[in-house]
């Protein structure tokens, strides 16, 4: 009961909404947040390649922005493997590692 006085509680407790409406609203919001991967300029592409190589050879930490299931993801780490056969890089951060496909990468920055 006391939740009524917190955050959005007053409105949560009194809301009248059909479950079908609620679900449709969530779906339409998710659809709006969907992102397609932008086209990259050749210069940007080259910059990305250079950053990845640099990280691979010097273990420098980089921030990678990439598209996964139409959402932007941000992953930090150093490139520990470049898998040319499957067209992807392995980004390692201590114990965690993430495989990122080449063609999903939007931008790469040196981590500050």
């Amino acid at each position: 009961m006391s939740k009524k006085l917190e955050k959005n509680g007053l409105w949560e407790s009194s809301r009248m909404m059909l479950p079908q409406h609620r679900e449709a609203f969530v779906v339409s919001r998710q659809a709006q947040n969907k992102r397609d991967k932008p086209c990259l300029h050749d210069d940007e592409f080259e910059l990305i390649v250079r950053c990845i190589k640099e990280s691979y050879y010097t273990q420098k930490t980089i921030d990678v922005q990439w598209v996964h299931e139409q959402q932007y993801e941000y992953t930090t780490g150093n490139v520990s493997k470049i898998d040319e056969h499957s067209q992807r890089i392995k980004l390692q951060k201590e114990e965690d590692m993430t495989w990122i496909p080449f063609d999903s990468i939007v931008s790469v920055k040196n981590s500050s």
Binding site: K7, N8, G9, L10, W11, E12, R22, F25, V26, R29
Partner: peptide, 14 residues
């Protein structure tokens, strides 16, 4: 008196 936010994400996480 009401400081509740307008929160569209209120519907996520049922």
């Amino acid at each position: 008196i009401d400081d509740s936010p307008v929160s569209p994400q209120t519907f996520e996480g049922q």
